[in-house]
Design a protein around this nucleic acid. Structure first.
Length: 426
RNA sequence: GGAAGAGUGGCAGAGCUGGUUUAAUGCACUGGUCUUGAAAACCAGCGUGCGGCAACGUACCGGGGGUUCGAAUCCCUCCUCUUCCGCCA
């Protein structure tokens, strides 16, 4: 969430940000009620602090009187305390209510987009940041989509997934499973080379973790929820890995902190059906290698560029045609200040598929998580958090299968061959 | 899942028969004195949030609730950890 002080001092920036996100005009009223609630909160707390002070003082005196045996005088002071309590009335409850309301209101305000983020409503307004170089591959009319190829070569089985779990839970097998595992290992090794510490986190998280990254309450419907245990299945490793430092006050010398982690990701994807969700294009469970960084504010955008390069290098090495988009305000996630999406061109489906998204959240997540560091002046500051997929597997597999199909089978990209230990799927 | 015990500041560890606790003490850390430099010694500082220019006030001793003039301390509840038993990859 945004910092109160920021909203107070830069209200116009917050409003302008909402506009670029194409939020409904009424949202600006929330800003006003936040400021109003905060004043209300301050008044209440100021009043209560004074009254509590009086009670503390009187209670101390009562103790002294009891020790010296002056019961009656003590009783008189007790009456005074009760009188003060009478003045307090239900103001303590009001304060708690005001604080809660304030928090709830703050949860509704998304991050302020970076100045470079274009205004826009939907993915149609996204800006091409790095266009694809050269010609797009053309496989001709005989090219098969990946779900056909999967059948032909027994790589994954969606029907079996349905039998075992339900729609959207693919079962990988044979060389399909090996390709999956090869990609995971390749991606983890590449992250390792770039100094990311590997993490295997819990796949279920509690509510506090969900709130920390901004997944809750915003994406409540997107996550699988275990009511009996009050736990959520992770939609991405971002949630458990970022929460490693929830509540921490880090030392400046610890930064930057870089983590990578492979996890399956679970998404309910409620209400999304249609031609574009066939095969592995959109599933409830998929594998992903995530990278997460904690940075000093002044370094965070340089870090974002580094992540951009990292993902670009992976896609280049995999010989996949890709482009990078700068998301417009309306397509930006709630917590993000700037997001680059990577799209790979599927030559068989003749469309671009999103395979990665790298974002800078600035202090939006760290303010929720209260992740701070002590700078050189020993002042506490919120860190900047960033994360990105490097990479999400399902669609990468789809594109590798489709783009590399030949009459003699599917060619495995050279960099993966040491991992798959086979060069072609036939 | 059952039983017992325990959760205190970066760490260790008092307090827990309710009232100089504004949480002792030690370690660690920071600054200073001393020293050619370091160590040691000594002096001082040293948690987090909110309000305030500040002095300072206030809240926080796992979370939540209660009793009381007053709660780290008593009661209820939840969570976590340890030990023992049971189950188990």
């Amino acid at each position: 969430m945004l910092e109160l002080s920021f909203i107070k001092e830069h209200k116009e920036k917050v409003l302008e940000g909402l506009e670029r996100r194409c939020y409904p005009a009424e949202t600006s009223e929330i800003i006003d009620s936040i400021l109003e609630k905060n004043e209300n909160r301050k008044t209440l707390q100021g009043f209560l602090d004074v009254k509590r002070g009086e009670i503390n003082k009187l209670s101390g005196q009562i103790g002294d009187l009891f020790k010296s045996g002056k019961q009656e005088e003590a009783q008189a002071l007790k009456d005074q305390v009760n009188a003060v309590k009478g003045e307090m009335g239900d103001k303590e409850k009001q304060l708690i209510a005001a604080e809660n309301q304030l928090t709830q209101l703050l949860y509704k305000i998304p991050n302020v987009p970076h100045p470079s983020v274009p205004k826009g409503k939907s993915d149609e307004d996204n800006e091409v940041h790095i266009p694809h170089q050269g010609d797009l591959p053309d496989l001709g009319e005989s090219a098969l989509p990946h779900w056909e190829l999967a059948k032909k070569y027994q790589l994954f089985d969606l029907e079996l997934g349905v039998k075992i779990a339900g729609a959207g839970f693919p079962l990988y097998r044979g060389k399909g499973a090996k390709l999956e595992r090869a990609l995971i290992n390749y991606f983890l090794d590449e992250a390792d080379k770039r100094g990311y510490e590997e993490i295997i986190p819990p796949l279920l998280v509690n509510e506090a973790s969900g709130i920390g990254t901004g997944s809750l309450p915003d994406k409540e419907g997107q996550m699988y929820y275990m009511e009996k245990d009050d736990l959520y299945l992770i939609p991405t490793a971002e949630v458990p890995v970022t929460n490693i430092h929830r509540g921490d006050i880090l030392d400046e010398s610890q930064l930057p902190i870089k983590y990578t982690g492979y996890t399956p990701c679970f998404r309910r994807e409620a209400g999304s059906y249609g031609a574009h969700v066939r095969g592995l294009n959109r599933v409830h469970q998929f594998n992903k290698v995530e990278i997460v960084r904690f940075e000093k504010p002044e370094n965070s955008y340089a870090a974002l560029e580094e992540m951009l390069k990292h993902v670009s290098d992976l896609l280049t090495a995999l010989e996949l045609p890709f482009r990078v988009l700068r998301l417009c305000g309306g397509d930006l996630t709630f917590a993000s200040a700037l997001t680059y999406d990577f799209e790979v061109y599927s030559a068989a489906q003749k469309r671009w598929l999103e395979v990665s998204s790298v974002s800078n959240f600035e202090t939006f997540q760290s303010n929720r998580m209260k992740t701070r560091y002590k700078d050189s002046n020993k002042k506490k500051q919120l860190v900047h958090t960033l994360n990105g997929s490097a990479l999400a597997l399902a669609r990468i597999v789809a594109c590798i299968l489709e783009n590399n199909q030949t009459t003699n089978g599917i060619k495995i990209p050279v960099v993966l061959q040491p991992y798959t230990k086979f060069e072609v799927i036939s």
